[in-house]
Simulated assay, not measured.
Amino acid sequence: MTKMSGTTNSSARRAPIKALHVGSGDPVLLLHGFMLSPHCWEQVALRLSSHCEVFAPAFAGHWGGEPIDGWSIDFHFLADRIEDQLDELGWRTCHIAGNSLGGWVGFELARRGRARTLTAIAPAGGWQSPSLAQWRAGAKFLAMVPIVEIGKRLGGFAIDNPIAQRLALLALSKNVAAVSRRDVAAMITAALHCDAMLPMILGSTRGPALDDLSNLAIPVRLLMAEYDRIVPNRVYARRFLQELPDSADRILVNGVGHVPMLEAPDRIATLIAEHIYASRTHLRAV
């Protein structure tokens, strides 16, 4: 596991991270998105670590994560592996924040009774199964397979190329100038080292949907990214908006893309921390 410090060498190429583990206090689990890695949580984890013990692991089959076997996996499989890690830490329950695929897995962990609170940031999985929305999501990522294969062959040129970096940022961020080139390079590297790409695409287009969300008993905060180009709100947030309990917070985060931790770490850290602290005193955020 990687212990974080307050400073980083901006010129150094990132190494894979099995897990970030930093701080002390309330246990907080941070889950990254599909084809990404714990790197995308570094700035948020640093901000939360003053009052929380933060654990941000790499998903199985992702850059830094444990290897996978088989040709098809789904969010249940990833949740099983995360539960094993929580058991190793001695965390029966914890606060969970997940982005995209991480939000999808976060809902499953909440259903299993492992969450004290859940902050779902631009979560994936907001579809029924089978459904057109489910197949469209799978087709979108399947179309990326040739691009990733070309990037693997180009190696460092693809990772450090300004054009490739800008194209990646345009897909995941709104304010591209707010994201460092080092963070973009880590994001591209993670995508090129994601062995779970095809197995996850196959599993998610064939597998079951999330169970009914209306009976979640924990405090839930849904953060929708205004400029989400990966799982646009008008299609993929509809189920979350309709099914989550009335007590759940529903927040549109203005001016950010699908992975807002990269471009707005202060805002995202604050929104997660607010949700955690409100649960202590049973206050609702307004």
Score class of each variant (00 low, 15 high):
K3S: 12
M4C: 08
S5A: 12
G6S: 15
G6L: 12
G6K: 14
R14F: 04
V22R: 07
G23L: 07
S24H: 12
G25Y: 05
L29C: 12
L30E: 03
L30W: 03
L30V: 07
F34L: 09
L36P: 00
C40E: 13
Q43P: 00
V44P: 04
L48V: 07
S49H: 08
H51F: 08
H51E: 11
H51Q: 13
C52H: 15
C52D: 13
A56F: 06
A58E: 03
G61F: 07
G65A: 07
I68F: 07
I68Y: 06
D69W: 02
G70H: 06
S72D: 09
F75R: 08
F75W: 05
H76S: 09
E83I: 09
D84S: 04
Q85K: 14
D87N: 15
G90Y: 02
H95E: 06
N99V: 13
S100A: 15
S100M: 10
G103F: 10
G103N: 08
W104V: 03
V105P: 05
R111K: 11
T117A: 03
L118N: 08
T119E: 04
P123W: 10
A124H: 11
A124R: 11
A124M: 12
G126A: 13
S129V: 00
L132T: 09
A133W: 02
G138K: 14
M144I: 06
A158G: 03
D160I: 00
N161W: 04
P162M: 03
A164E: 01
A164H: 01
Q165S: 04
Q165A: 04
L167A: 11
L172M: 15
K174H: 15
K174G: 05
N175L: 09
A178K: 08
S180M: 05
R182S: 15
D183I: 01
V184P: 01
V184E: 04
T189D: 08
L192Y: 03
C194K: 00
D195E: 15
A196D: 03
M197P: 00
M197W: 14
P199V: 08
I201N: 11
S204R: 11
R206I: 02
A209Q: 02
L210A: 02
I218T: 02
I218G: 03
P219M: 12
V220W: 04
L223S: 06
E226P: 06
Y227D: 13
D228Y: 15
I230N: 02
V231E: 03
N233D: 10
R234S: 12
R234D: 12
A237Q: 11
R239C: 02
F240C: 02
L241I: 05
Q242N: 07
Q242S: 10
E243M: 01
A248D: 01
R250L: 06
I251M: 13
I251R: 13
V256T: 05
V259Q: 07
P260K: 09
M261C: 13
M261Q: 14
L262Y: 13
P265K: 14
R267T: 14
A269Q: 10
A273V: 00
E274G: 04
A278G: 01
A278M: 06
S279K: 00
R280N: 01
T281F: 11
L283E: 06
A285F: 08
V286H: 07
